[in-house]
């Protein structure tokens, strides 16, 4: 059995899921909102990239930068427009979660309308992707030259930010204990905005890369959301390295796992999403803290039951 193709596929998808999941982990750890509208940040990034490349003739690099800003601004707008006012009125996390589903629906269907009118319900960024080398039976293409470096650079930059800059450390502090961060003088709303901006941005870049890697529709983020949550939950929804490991594990499980089950047990590849579901269920059942730290189930129980302070 030749594993070169599943290996390359796993790394590619794992990288994309990692980028998307890092945004979710950042926003969850700081705000404790399980943001389902995170899916739309992927989609918007994908569309901005595809349309700039196809209609405006921009290069992939420039378009990805634009995708970063588009999704970053959408993320900030979500928080400023919906989450923040709700939190100030004392909403429980459960309500915020439902609100995020609502935001997601609105954005998704607005995009559907736009895409329908402009005949881009399915679209691919027409970038020049070519075969540049081979690894076993797998082809190495120029898209890999975008995906891997961007993922690695993003991870390194985020790591440097979180550990060597003041706002980065303050974000980690906020994730740990928001009240204590406030009494330490952290301007939490300014930092929240910064966090949404960065989290939205990298998620948008991941969506943009997806539009060059494959085809996108207004539902692309929604379909990817399961994997994003699986990756993030593997890291307990709050752990940076846990999320990276989670993204890669989901990528590998979905490719190696399904290739293996298909080869030996004749399981259809259509059951691929099941793997992510199983990951989520197993983690929540056996180790609700993920790889690191945060008791999601306990936290949810407490928040759903008690009024929350």
């Amino acid at each position: 059995m030749d594993l070169s193709i599943p290996l390359i596929n796993s790394l590619t998808l794992g990288s994309l899921y990692t980028l998307m999941a890092l945004g979710l982990t950042m926003s969850f750890s700081v705000t404790k909102i399980a943001n389902f509208a995170h899916a739309e940040l992927v989609t918007i990034g994908g569309y901005v990239t595809a349309l700039l490349v196809n209609w405006m003739g921009y290069g992939l690099g420039e378009s990805l930068i634009a995708a970063f800003f588009a999704s970053a601004l959408l993320a900030v707008a979500m928080d400023e427009g919906v989450f923040k006012p709700m939190i100030k009125r004392g909403s429980k996390p459960l309500f915020l979660l439902v609100a995020s589903i609502g935001i997601g629906l609105v954005v998704r269907y607005l995009l559907f309308i736009y895409a329908d009118l402009n005949a881009v319900i399915t679209v691919q960024a027409k970038t020049n992707v070519q075969l540049i080398g081979r690894f076993g039976r797998a082809g190495i293409t120029t898209i890999h030259l975008w995906v891997f470096p961007i993922t690695i650079v993003s991870v390194v930059l985020l790591h440097l930010m979180f550990h060597y800059t003041k706002p980065g450390k303050a974000l980690r502090a906020m994730a740990d204990n928001e009240d204590l961060a406030r009494v330490s003088g952290v301007k939490i709303y300014t930092l929240r905005r910064l966090m949404w901006f960065i989290a939205g941005g990298i998620t948008g870049v991941a969506g943009g890369l997806w539009s060059a890697y494959s085809v996108i529709t207004p539902e692309i983020g929604w379909y990817a959301l399961l994997r994003i949550f699986a990756a993030s939950i593997l890291g307990g929804l709050v752990s940076f390295w846990g999320t990276i490991a989670g993204g890669l594990i989901v990528g590998f499980a979905e490719n190696f796992g399904i290739t293996f089950m298909n080869t030996y047990f004749n399981v259809s590849t259509a059951y691929r999403p099941l793997i992510s579901f199983v990951i989520i269920v197993i983690v929540l059942l056996l180790k609700p803290t993920g790889f690191a730290g945060f008791d999601i189930v306990g936290w949810l129980k407490e928040k759903v039951k008690g009024g929350g302070e």
Partner: peptide, 20 residues
Amino acid sequence: VNNVFPNLTVRENLEMGAYA
């Protein structure tokens, strides 16, 4: 209770004390 940042190092906690 909850008066330190558990996932930050001791030194980072002290730096957070001087954040402002």
